[in-house]
Computed example of a mutant assay.
Amino acid sequence: MFVIFVFSASQYLLTMGEEVFEGAELVVLPCHYSGVIPEVSPSVIWSRHDLKPQTVHLRRKEDDLCGQNQRFSGRTSMKSDALDSADFSLSLRNPRLYDSGNYVCIISDGTAKITVTEVQLQVKGQ
C-alpha cells in the first residue's frame, strides 16, 4: 500500500519577521502548521538558503543535527512534541549578528516538501 501526500504550498506559506538584540538569551522563530502531518517519515527542516550547509535544525522523531550548519551547533531546539502538536517553532539561543537572515520552515514526508513559514530574523547590535 502506498500513500501519497500532496501539499499545497499556497495554503500554508506565511512570511513574518522577528527582531532581537544581540546578547538576548533566546529568540523563537514561529512556525505553526494546520495541515495533515504525514504518518510515514515526517520531518521538519529549518534552513537558510544562503548558508552551506543550509540546515539550521532537522527534526524527525528526535532531533537529527549531524548535518547541521556548525554556526548553530548547541544553540537550536524545538519542542519534543513538535510533530504531534504541529508547533514547529525554532528556539535559537544567544542570537548573534551573523544569525540575521531568512529562515525557512519546511515539513516533509521524505518525498514531498512544503514551505510552511518564512521568517526574516534581524539581530541588532547593542
Rank of each mutant, 00 (worst) to 15 (best):
L83M: 07
S91R: 13
L14M: 02
R75C: 05
N94A: 12
Q54A: 11
E22S: 04
Q54T: 05
Y12I: 07
F21L: 00
R48G: 02
T15H: 05
R48E: 13
E19V: 12
R48A: 09
F5L: 15
S47P: 09
I107F: 03
C66S: 11
L26I: 05
G17P: 00
F21M: 03
V56W: 13
L51F: 03
V36I: 13
Q126E: 08
E62Y: 07
F2S: 01
V6C: 02
Q54P: 11
E39Q: 15
C105L: 12
D84L: 14
C31V: 08
Q68A: 01
S91T: 05
R93T: 11
V27N: 13
F21A: 11
N94Y: 15
V6H: 07
I4V: 15
W46K: 09
H49Y: 05
P95Y: 00
H57A: 14
Y12R: 09
S43E: 05
T15E: 11
L51D: 00
A24L: 03
R59I: 10
P30L: 04
G67S: 12
Y12E: 07
K124M: 12
I45R: 09
G74M: 03
L51Q: 06
C105G: 12
Y98H: 01
T15G: 05
P95C: 02
S73P: 02
A9T: 08
M16P: 03
L83Q: 05
L13H: 04
F21Q: 12
F2A: 07
G125Y: 06
T115D: 00
K113W: 13
M16S: 15
K61F: 00
E19K: 00
Q122W: 14
S77H: 08
G17N: 07
S41Y: 05
A112I: 11
V6F: 08
F88K: 11
T111K: 10
H32F: 03
K61M: 02
G101Y: 13
E22A: 06
S89F: 12
R60A: 08
S41C: 09
L14N: 03
